[in-house]
């Protein structure tokens, strides 16, 4: 049987970490695009559009990400007869999950912009789209940056769940390696350390931004 050195284990984990980063990035940016659209629907003057987007957000916020992964992975093959790869299923599930949370974070920021800002821009004759683009969103974005970066941490950690549908990322790789080396404590500790190295800077950055934006007015 092959002997695994510490460097060996680490190298294998780091190779798998690339997929954790890739999945996180796609989920976060894909979720950002979808989430932006959902956010616009959430603040729409039209009550039907608002309700549809509210239902969307509530479904993804009120069910475990793990269930969402299972439902996408098994559900799409059952319902549509497609054989979805673990990669595709994980991407779809994490994107929709992120979109719901980001939509909610951003809606909160838009609603935190004082009503007087809408009124003043309306009174000047700005049409709705320009009110949003020039007055409301620039202020909302500043407020939402800390919590948006904070949510990126949740996405990185959330990708570990994709291991259960067979997507080989950091967690899945760690479990494979520990099955061979019989050193689960060592291997999972190293995996945890890698997650920490990914997430801790993000969370520090989020805290820094929170301070920065709270002092400006």
């Amino acid at each position: 049987m092959q002997d695994f050195t510490l460097a060996n284990i680490l190298a294998n984990l780091l190779i798998a970490t690339r997929w954790t980063i890739a999945l996180s990035a796609i989920a976060f940016f894909g979720g950002g695009i979808v989430g932006f659209i959902i956010m616009l629907m959430r603040i729409s003057p039209n009550p039907i559009i608002r309700t549809i987007s509210l239902i969307y957000v509530e479904i993804f916020e009120a069910t475990p990400l793990l269930m969402q992964l299972f439902l996408v992975f098994f559900g799409i093959s059952v319902l549509l007869g497609l054989n979805l790869s673990a990669w595709a299923a994980a991407t779809i599930a994490l994107t929709t999950y992120s979109s719901a949370f980001l939509a909610d974070i951003w809606r909160g920021s838009v609603e935190a912009v004082p009503r007087g800002q809408w009124e003043a821009s309306r009174a000047l004759g700005l049409p709705y789209i320009k009110q949003l683009k020039r007055i409301i969103l620039p202020q909302a974005v500043r407020m939402s940056i800390p919590s948006t970066v904070g949510f990126a941490v949740q996405v990185v950690k959330g990708t570990s769940l994709a291991s259960v549908i067979g997507f080989i990322e950091l967690t899945r790789s760690a479990s494979s390696i520990s099955n061979v080396t019989f050193q689960p404590f060592l291997v999972y500790s190293m995996a945890a350390l890698i997650y920490f190295c990914l997430c801790f800077p993000l969370s520090l950055w989020s805290k820094h931004l929170e301070k920065k934006f709270s002092y400006e007015g």
Partner: peptide, 28 residues
């Protein structure tokens, strides 16, 4: 909007745009 263009309004709470400079507030 065509009406609002012709009717200026000044509010009790000023409602200036905090992310724009004074001159940008006026130019927008």
């Amino acid at each position: 909007e065509a009406i609002r263009r012709e009717v200026g309004m000044v509010f009790q709470q000023f409602n200036l745009f905090p992310h724009l400079t004074v001159v940008e507030n006026v130019m927008l």
